[in-house]
């Protein structure tokens, strides 16, 4: 599998570490239920899926990679960190 790293270009997936679903957002505050959902609950969709991959053996950027779970097609990848205003 190849991942198009926006920083390094098309790279072998073995350079990356996968973290899974990119959708959960860490809740602020003390809501234990929300934190439980964040830590444990994941969707497992058949089709397009955005997941987090870490380019551990490359630029060390966390990426949001859009992958089709039906056929492993990778639609695209972007930096997880939002672009900062210059």
């Amino acid at each position: 599998m190849r991942i198009p790293c926006p920083f390094c270009g098309s790279r072998d997936s073995r350079e990356f570490v996968s973290r899974g679903d990119a959708a959960p957002v860490r809740p602020a505050g003390d809501d234990a239920e929300a934190m439980f959902d964040y830590v444990y609950l994941r969707d497992n969709p058949a089709g397009l899926f955005e997941e987090l991959w870490y380019h551990a053996q490359g630029c060390r950027n966390w990426l949001r990679v859009e992958r089709n779970t039906r056929d492993h097609t990778i639609v695209g990848a972007r930096l997880a960190r939002p672009e900062r205003a210059a």
Binding site: V17, R19, L52, Y54, A56, R60, L79, A80, R81, P82
Partner: peptide, 17 residues
Amino acid sequence: AAPVMRHIDFARQVLWP
């Protein structure tokens, strides 16, 4: 060593950019 580096990068890039 490597997992903590990954954890820090996750925290500073994804959780609290």
